[in-house]
Design a protein around this nucleic acid. Structure first.
Lengths: 215, 215
DNA sequence: GTCTATATGAGGATAGAC
DNA sequence: GTCTATCCTCATATAGAC
């Protein structure tokens, strides 16, 4: 349709420009439609690329999906690790710090809408996905975040702000009380909670967490 | 294929026999395949019925799906309420009773496999489902179970076995610690956890719950 | 209950740009 | 010659006609 200005895809080999467009379009369309309903045609249209071009870069639709969820997991994990770095280390007031972090973590950031939609697709397809893919996704996304949380909460323990004899369980409880509750109630962010409810849940989650682990 | 003995669908109006077969087949196929991938053809085949018969009983595929999840929610809620009745009322040892109940609740019962698969489909389609349908499903399934749990746990509070100043939150914490943790880890039962892990999670969940609410 | 109309999807073939 | 775009094929879906 639109005449494509001109020099778009010049970058050493000639590949990456359009490939990025395809990856972004795939993320958006798979997120919006789910795996089966998403058509390669739609992805091509959204990327401003011909369908054939997609098959030049990706073996088939399944491969495209697998790479899409993997990339999404990696980028969101990086963002969350950043949040942990800035929000959980060097906090002054314990309760307020945890609440602020929890809120930032759990509020559905517009940039991550697609990611959460993809997570819902993964849940839906989990039983059909190759075991290795699912494990790879866990390695790339959730696991590093848990590891970062463990490190950060471990430091709080070291500083004497929290007490526990099972750090991993403590981290699971934090995730459960602050994050998972929200996920369940919002159908994994398919039906966003009102901001007020969200705030209340995070605050009450943190308070309960502290009832368990405050010295 | 099989010649269908003869007098199968005699029941006052003539409807319900085949309708039940269709409902059962729809539950199975939607659970196995998800909404989009499931074909009405496959459902008809599984029900031993012609496709036309399905369209005689249900307006279209979407309507069939909506009624299917509703019926599934109702029947599983009834079973879970039964479990609560038999497992949570009149328990002798508090911790052991809660653990036994939690295990029975959370272990993926073969009869409910389809139900959990449907829940995954609901999560996947949640953003596309009519608001009213989702609310109706919550009313029919999860809500009554929560209500039953609230009643049962309320009685434990009345008997002085637990203390709380916010019963609803207490119930949410029980659900979270005993059930939700398992759901998250198993991708809502798409990837079943080893029995040992499951046991450990329930036991540790109950223990944490008691740390919060034991007098 | 079978048979058909219509549409849409995945992936391959064929032809054009630089 | 490499990368892109348009057209083709074959399978399968829903829903309605017979």
């Amino acid at each position: 349709m639109s005449p494509e200005p001109s020099g778009t895809s010049r970058q050493r080999g000639g590949l990456p420009e359009k490939r990025k467009a395809i990856a972004a379009a795939a993320r958006a369309v798979f997120a919006r439609e789910g795996y089966t309903r998403a058509s390669v045609d739609a992805i091509a249209a959204e990327a401003g690329v011909s369908k054939r071009t997609i098959y030049n870069h990706y073996r088939d639709k399944e491969q495209l999906f697998l790479l899409t969820i993997q990339e999404s997991a990696v980028s969101v994990a990086a963002a969350h690790l950043d949040l942990i770095q800035h929000g959980l280390c060097d906090l002054e007031d314990l309760e307020e710090g945890l609440v602020a972090f929890g809120r930032a973590w759990v509020v559905p950031q517009p940039d991550f809408e697609d990611h959460f939609a993809l997570v819902r697709v993964i849940i839906a397809e989990a039983a059909r996905l190759p075991e290795a893919v699912l494990q790879g996704w866990l390695e790339a996304g959730p696991r590093p975040v848990t590891a970062g949380l463990t490190k950060a909460i471990g430091e709080l323990v070291d500083r004497g702000l929290l007490v526990t004899d099972d750090l991993d369980e403590t981290v699971r409880h934090f995730v459960l009380l602050v994050n998972t509750e929200v996920l369940e109630q919002s159908f994994h962010h398919a039906i966003p909670l009102p901001a007020a409810d969200l705030d209340r849940l995070v605050r009450s989650g943190v308070r309960t967490f502290l009832r368990l682990y405050r010295p």
